[in-house]
Simulated scan of single mutants.
Amino acid sequence: MADSLFPAVEKYIENEGLLNKMKGYQAQLYRIMGQGSTRAKGLDLPPASIERRIELVSFKPLQDASAPKAIIAEIDQIRRELERELSFLKKTDEQKKLANQVLRGLGVSQSGIKDNRFYVGRLILSCENSGRAWTWSLTPHYPIIENIPPDLNYIQKAYFRAEELFKEILLAPDIFEEKLNLSWLIARHFSTGEKVLIIDVARMFKVAGQSEKFWSTPKKATFVDLVDAAFIANLINWMKQSGERSFSFSQATLHQAHGKHAKAFYLPVNTEGTQTRPVIYIDKK
Rank of each mutant, 00 (worst) to 15 (best):
A2L: 03
F6Y: 10
F6D: 02
E16V: 12
K23P: 05
A27K: 13
Y30Q: 15
G36F: 00
S37E: 11
K41A: 13
G42S: 08
D44V: 10
L45C: 11
P46R: 00
I50E: 04
I50F: 07
R52N: 12
R53G: 02
V57G: 09
S58L: 10
D64W: 11
A65H: 11
S66I: 12
P68Q: 07
K69P: 05
I71C: 06
I71F: 07
I72K: 14
D76G: 10
I78S: 05
E81M: 06
L82F: 13
R84W: 01
D93A: 15
K96E: 09
K97W: 03
A99R: 01
L106Q: 04
Q110R: 14
D115N: 15
N116A: 10
G121D: 05
R122I: 11
I124H: 00
L125C: 05
S126C: 07
S130P: 00
G131H: 08
W134D: 11
S137D: 11
P143K: 04
N147I: 04
P150K: 01
D151A: 04
K157D: 14
F160E: 09
E168G: 00
P173R: 08
D174I: 08
E178T: 14
L180S: 03
L180C: 05
I186H: 02
T192C: 01
L197T: 04
A208P: 02
Q210W: 08
T217E: 10
K219H: 12
D228A: 13
A229S: 13
A229N: 05
A230P: 07
N237P: 04
N237S: 14
W238I: 04
R245F: 01
L254W: 04
H261V: 08
H261M: 08
F265N: 01
E272H: 10
I282D: 00
